[in-house]
Design a binder for these strands. Structure first.
Lengths: 155, 155
DNA sequence: GATGAAATCGCTCCCGT
DNA sequence: ACGGGAGCGATTTCATC
């Protein structure tokens, strides 16, 4: 992961459809050398995949909400975690520091769907003790583009 | 946005490198008809772009944190919002319901970088009144793959 | 590991239905 | 609006440095 790999990784995040000719200019290498770099980034697991970035509003999930969850102490949370992983409306599920056990990020069609998720999916989980939710009124920024740290030779 | 578009959109989210031949099998159409569908999804803004999905740990930002921010009442928040949008470590910035004004999602290298962001970037903002932060101890799920609602002819 | 050329694969365009 | 085929640009591979 040298400076060249870093530039390639940054470029691929911003435009995955760039093409090797474009990437070669960014990296300063030849086309085939650039292709080799990209392939190795995939093999090392730096690049996990290639995805189309969709507009939430256009695919019927304009409402963004967060839900804090407290689980009953001593209870096994495996069932809860599996249930959250399976739900397509649960975009994120993190165990967090502070007063709550988990923080969920949800995308749903409307308030009705949001409430239905909480009542049926969360209250239905036996391990769930208490929940608190909040809605995004406006989104200033929402990206999956990661900051790529400069040239630390760690893998 | 019929059922065919929906299937294409779902496939493109899961594997954006699929290729039209693969997509044609999913959609049940010919290659050229599928290409036309994809093009129109881009034109309508359903597909916003194509991106490589990177592993946060491999690019030097393994630490995930959330920060709640309260702004001083009556203050203009434009400067704050612009500052957050510019920061590459701020992945998300939402105005939210409840006791806080904004919720930020951050990706940084380590605790030192996390603290530095809060002290220098947030405390440095004149509009910022109060903040509260929490860290992700473990991530059960973190995806940008959206649920695509079935066949609502809206656009 | 990088380069440049050759072969192969997949996309794009066009026309017929 | 869909399907098929020709043309072309792209990627991938290979020999060489």
């Amino acid at each position: 992961m040298d400076e060249i790999d870093r530039n390639i990784a940054i470029a691929l995040q911003q435009d995955g459809s760039a093409g090797l000719a474009e990437l070669a200019k960014v990296s300063g290498l030849s086309v085939s050398a650039t292709a080799e770099r990209v392939k190795r980034l995939e093999e090392r697991g730096v690049v996990r995949g290639w995805r189309a970035d969709l507009d939430p509003a256009h695919v019927g999930c304009p409402l963004l909400g967060f839900v804090f969850v407290n689980l009953r102490p001593g209870r096994d949370d495996a069932a809860f975690r599996r249930a959250m992983s399976r739900h397509e409306h649960v975009l994120e599920c993190h165990r967090v520091t502070g007063g709550w056990t988990f923080l969920l990020k949800l995308r749903v069609a409307d308030l009705r769907a949001f409430e239905m998720f909480m009542e049926e999916e969360l209250r239905g989980q036996p391990a769930v003790e208490r929940i608190e939710s909040l809605l995004a009124i406006a989104t200033e920024k929402e990206t999956a583009i990661l900051p790529v740290a400069p040239a630390t030779d760690e893998e």
